[in-house]
Amino acid sequence: MTTDSVPKPAAFQLDPTQLQRDYGSPRIVFGLIMTGVSILFMVLALIPLGLVLYYVTIEGGSKLSWDLFVALPPPPLVEGGGFGNALVGTIIMVAIGAAISVPVGVMAAIYLAEFGTGKIADWVRFANKVLSGVPSIIVGVFAYAVLVVTFRTYSAWAGGFAMAILMLPTIIASTDEALKLVPQEVRQASVGIGANDYQTVLRVVLPAAVPAIVTGVTLAVARAAGETAPLIFTALFTQFWPNWSNWLLEPTASLSVMVYNFAIVPFENQQEMAFAGSFVLVFFVLLTSVAARLATARRVY
């Protein structure tokens, strides 16, 4: 071993007794400035949230009334009215979306977490991430081409289908995570007493992961409820109640499209309704986010 014994030069050595903080030194000044900047950015980031919540609450929250939830939208220059049909339409389309995306998403996640090994699972996960990045307007275009063109009408089905595609990536990712959190011993215990794989998954693993899956689905639903772009030319909008006798094969109102439509008109009553609709949407998102946060705080495993 060749250790060169090189004496340490005095040039870079410091007086060991000079430990005091020197507030004039560029390093400390730089640090203080950067700390200030990061605090400033933190505040800046929260200002828009505060302002949006404030205006939506002031302008929209104050207009809330029972009528709003049960009446039909007013024509221009007419007072009163509500967005009952839009509320029902949003619920219908989110329900259609969930009815498609939850079973497909959960099954896909079961494949990824339980049976998927190697290349296929890797590619599906990759495709799922890419799918989650597809702009919602493109999904709308797709649903238009597949359903609106085929059935020659705008419909709740086309809107719900678009929502299903938008919800799918979130549901798959959160279910995949939830299933992976279930300890391996639980599976081994089930297989050890002679259960088949599907029994193990359906009776043991899935129930254990249900709270986390429900959280993921809730967040996906909350996001979907606020989506506008995929609805404006799939479900369109209407002044009327959803028509069940027509199998929903007709333009269907939704809260988000109502906000959009009424935001860009010059009629005060409709503008107020846009704010009230926004308040309902934001409040729903806020509520589900807080609920999801609290739900993930206590896990089964």
Binding site: L14, L19, Q20, R21, D22, R27, I28
Partner: peptide, 8 residues
């Protein structure tokens, strides 16, 4: 001491 800079 309170005036000591840990960096130093």
């Amino acid at each position: 001491a309170s005036d000591v800079d840990p960096v130093q």
